[in-house]
């Protein structure tokens, strides 16, 4: 038996590692195994005998099943009084912050809307061109649906595809990619 240090022993006891004495296994004998003495019960040939015909499940699927059946929700957090208060304070503050942000966005949109309406009204009535400029401004041609050019539909229904890029923090490393298309 191998000698183990007491530190290792205590670690093994902590982590519940079973300590097995290291033994040398006997080498597998190279001699052929003895022929089974019992005669098979069936007289049919071996090839006809049924192999293991249970459909074997892919190991990946077994793994997926294992992870899908992960025991559900952990128990909810339990906070002490002070921690709960702290959480409550932060939660309220975050909600308030979100609320003010949303309200500011709403107000900004409202301001823009009112400005647009005032401008349209000015164009319609204020200029003495019989509302010509107003009509030109408020036309919505090509906004919805593909623009038809020479029998085929071009474009993305009014909104150019170059416009539809999510905002990023900075410019790309390689500058403007002229070959970019979608």
């Amino acid at each position: 038996m191998m000698k183990l240090s007491p530190a290792l022993l205590s670690l093994a006891s902590v982590f519940k590692i079973p300590l097995r004495p290291y033994t040398i296994l006997p080498a597998p004998s190279l001699l052929p195994k003895p022929f089974p003495s019992k005669t098979p019960f069936s007289t049919s040939s071996v090839s006809l005998a049924r192999k293991d015909q249970r459909n074997k499940v892919d190991k990946r699927i077994t793994l997926i099943r294992y992870h899908l059946n992960h025991p559900a929700t952990p128990r909810p957090l339990r906070f002490s009084r002070l921690r709960a208060l702290r959480h409550w304070t932060i939660h309220r503050a975050a909600q308030l912050h979100l609320h003010t942000q949303r309200r500011l966005e709403q107000l900004e949109l409202e301001r823009q809307y009112n400005a647009m309406r005032a401008a349209c009204e000015e164009l319609r009535v204020g200029l003495d061109d019989g509302g010509r400029l107003y009509r030109q401004t408020t036309t919505r041609k090509g906004l919805f649906g593909g623009l038809k050019m020479e029998g085929e539909i071009v474009g993305n229904g009014g909104v150019p595809i170059e416009y539809a890029k999510a905002q990023v923090d900075g410019p790309p490393r390689g500058g403007w990619d002229h070959g970019w298309m979608r």
């Binding site: 593909g146 539909i153 993305n156 229904g157 909104v159 890029k165």
Partner: peptide, 19 residues
């Protein structure tokens, strides 16, 4: 659907064919 398509195409989903 028209407004929804404008919204989605402004988010980058391309549409093809007759709208």
């Amino acid at each position: 659907d028209r407004d929804a398509r404008v919204l989605l195409s402004s988010m980058g989903i391309p549409f093809h064919g007759k709208h």
